[in-house]
Nucleic acid binder design. Structure first.
Lengths: 159, 159
DNA sequence: GGAGGGGTACTCGGATAAGAGCTGTCCGAGTATCAATGG
DNA sequence: CCATTGATACTCGGACAGCTCTTATCCGAGTACCCCTCC
């Protein structure tokens, strides 16, 4: 029970994209972070399907954020990469077995499922309060404001 | 990225155990819920390793809760079955690549990891506020107080 | 009648296969750029 | 000198294997009960 590693990559890429002017191809994002180019491309495709980024094909193509960074929450990224399926899925155990409760009596949700859903909602709420813009500002204050400028220059100079 | 299905089984078993007098073998718990006996045994072993239940071997053996139901939170069960490893693991991407931040400058935790950890803490906090005893009381009020008595009788009569 | 010993049946515990999902890779479809050519 | 046209190189997108983790199963180790035997 572990979150996909691609989530971390995707968030980092979104933060970087939020500070770049033009489109950035997946290959350069992979080179910057020293990760598999092909696999990161897969994550970017997920972001594209989720509507978080827009893909530009052709010579000077790449990915661009579709919305302002402050309007993209971490939850959006997690949903795009991992899917919206909840962590806990109730299989209605109470209805099974020789003493199972008949379905017509199961009006209220199973208390166990309810508790798990409440906790999951707390998790999602916490993720939805933090935006890509917030993260970018925090990175600027910790790693220095010139960090993103160096990245942009590296993208231009390219390897 | 889905929680192990065994978690649901384990919680249900803990709730049932909290209302039983004597030890209950894993086979009967499996029969009650109509799930794989062998696989549920594995989950019970995890609970035993986690110190939540005590195993009694021999003819009239089985599993018994080690603590009062009100002192066992759902989080304890999740930790016992899934392990205490966090959902999100930071691989320190910021240190990798040509523009990676040197380790000696990474004093503060990565903002991205920090945000994920905060959300995870909210999830765990929510889980830790609900005990097995709470769930048992909710089941009694929704499914009727006689439900657990029927189960106890079914365990005695056995199949 | 009571105590001791052996057998039996039941329990847990860990070691062992099958399946699904994540990780990683490849090649084809599409498009903007650039250069060459003709007017 | 400018517009058109073709080639080119670069991009994304989805289809294809390898591997780890979850799911499912089995058999051996250990223990309490029960019955039989002996005193």
């Amino acid at each position: 029970m572990k979150l996909s590693g691609g989530v971390e990559w995707a968030i980092h890429c979104c933060v970087v994209l939020s500070k770049m002017d033009g489109p950035v191809p997946a290959g350069k994002l992979a080179g910057l972070h020293d990760v598999s180019s092909s696999y990161l491309a897969k994550q970017m495709q997920a972001l594209s399907r989720g509507g978080l980024v827009r893909s530009l094909q052709g010579h000077a193509g790449g990915y661009v954020l579709t919305r302002p960074a402050d309007e993209i929450s971490i939850l959006d990224v997690v949903f795009a990469v991992e899917g919206k399926q909840p962590l806990f899925v109730c299989t209605e155990i109470r209805q099974r077995g020789p003493l199972g409760t008949p379905p017509e009596e199961c009006l209220a949700p199973c208390p166990i499922a309810k508790a798990m859903m409440t906790a999951e909602a707390a998790w999602r709420d916490s993720l939805s309060t933090i935006s890509i813009g917030d993260l970018a500002r925090q990175v600027s204050s910790t790693s220095g404001p010139e960090a993103f400028q160096s990245i942009q220059e590296w993208f231009s100079g390219a390897l």
